[in-house]
Design a binder for these strands. Structure first.
Lengths: 204, 204
DNA sequence: TTATGGTTTAACCGTTTGGTTGACAAATTT
DNA sequence: AAATTTGTCAACCAAACGGTTAAACCATAA
């Protein structure tokens, strides 16, 4: 029929699979539901992707490929740490507001199967902390920021940016927030978070 | 046989169910596996808990009941915010090191079924932010800490404490850490995190 | 000793699951 | 236009699933 490698059928399967896997996870997802969502026969899923496992892998890799460049922005960019934190925080939160399912999906499935990350870690473009490490040491030496391990700072930045999306139902309940108030809180974090981090590490 | 409400069988089912549910989640867990783990017949699971759903609820509520008092420590305690942050951080991280599965389990299952939290929110002892809110406003007025929304501060504290456990596989990969190095990093956070937060909010 | 009532088991059941098959339709090649 | 390849479907399958049943088991009370 078509010669394009990306058949329209293949694309609609991937989109449907993305929606279902992200809502229900690997274990909770059903092949029949994905087929219905894509409005095709269940046999087609196997024709294009052979098995549930492989279809899931395709979806997962695509999701991860979306996230990775965002993280490389803070790890491999050349600007100062303060600038990086400001840019990353605004950009990352805007990005996740558009893909709210993403962090949860990746974290959940990586915990289910930690070896999974090895299938990704070999790819080039996989985020790596080396350059960031050097930069942190540099700015500490120059007296720009207080002494802190690059790994700890990196964890803190990730945590403050990602956690609210992951723990949304929990936070909503503890703080008595409805959906709208929670979204407003997250929106405000675009500025709040970078100020918080910079306050914590910058020498005035 | 026994008249105790907590039969040894019931206890061993709950323990087995905890292990299996925490590793595989509600959808990934199998009743047969729980039975094998508890070394009893599968029918016993239904005899004591009627259905998978109810068994899961029992495990989930128990897990949540373990976590809730930890959070109330920071929300409803009377000491100053600085003291609370210091105590909470050390205590909470020590606590989670002993129950590393907990945050992930609760977050994962709450995202799968957000209505679930309503079954818990009615209980007394359910964490609530009201008192903490007043305290934050107070210390801001007195010039002890910088202006910050209580909700934002609460999210930040939760994020910095909990996130590393939730995102462990991801962080390990990005920072090229083996299990031991990662554990050392987390251990160090008992002090790191409270310093970081206090640096960020305290007026010197 | 024998009823009694909670506890435990092996075997079973209907349904759902991921996956397969074989026939057929629509392109592509010859 | 015939032959071949690629795409699509309804029907099917064996295995796994959560849950049930009926009979056995066993400590205690009568």
């Amino acid at each position: 029929m078509q010669k394009e490698k990306d058949t329209s059928t293949e694309r609609s399967i991937l989109e449907a699979a993305k929606r279902v896997f992200q809502n229900k996870g690997m274990d909770g997802a059903r092949m029949q539901e994905i087929a219905d969502e894509a409005r095709i026969n269940k046999a087609m899923l196997h024709y294009y992707f052979r098995s549930k496992e492989l279809l899931f892998e395709a979806v997962f890799k695509k999701a991860f490929a979306l996230l990775a460049p965002q993280l490389n922005a803070i790890l491999n960019d050349d600007s100062s740490i303060e600038e990086k934190i400001k840019n990353f925080t605004t950009n990352y939160i805007s990005f996740i507001i558009k893909h709210p399912y993403l962090p949860n999906f990746i974290i959940q499935e990586l915990n289910r199967n930690p070896n999974f990350i090895e299938k990704l870690a070999t790819n080039n473009g996989f985020p790596n902390i080396q350059k960031f490490k050097g930069q942190v040491r540099d700015e500490i030496e120059k007296g720009i920021i207080i002494p802190i391990g690059a790994e700890q700072l990196f964890i803190n930045i990730m945590a403050l940016n990602i956690f609210p999306f992951v723990a949304k139902p929990l936070i909503k309940a503890f703080a008595n927030l409805d959906e709208g108030a929670m979204d407003a809180l997250i929106e405000a974090r675009k500025n709040e978070v970078s100020n918080f981090i910079i306050n914590a590490i910058k020498i005035k």
